[in-house]
Amino acid sequence: MTVSPEWFVALSGVLFAIGAAGVLLRRNALVVLLSIEIMLNAANLALVGFSRVHGAHDGQVFAIMVMAIAASEVVVGLGIVVALSHLRRELDTDDMTELHG
């Protein structure tokens, strides 16, 4: 029995699903942002795993770019959370009374 790259990709499917559950079900903005990070990481693992399957570097290069982009998204997300926290004491996306939707 050897570890084949497919195992890694299958693991990424599990992680992606866990992250998706977090985004859809949690209402704390910080946890939702963390869950999005898990999903992006799962996608990265799939990219890297497939990169190994194909023996090409494209997947890895894309994964590194995704890291930079994910970090940018976090910066903006946390920026909004902090600005919002000045405004309201709750970070609850469910309690957004300003937008009833």
Binding site: A10, G13, V14, F16, A17, I18, A20, A21, L24, L25
Partner: peptide
Amino acid sequence: TVLGLGGILVGV
């Protein structure tokens, strides 16, 4: 969600 989405992805 986890079982559904994960199951589909892993299965695929």
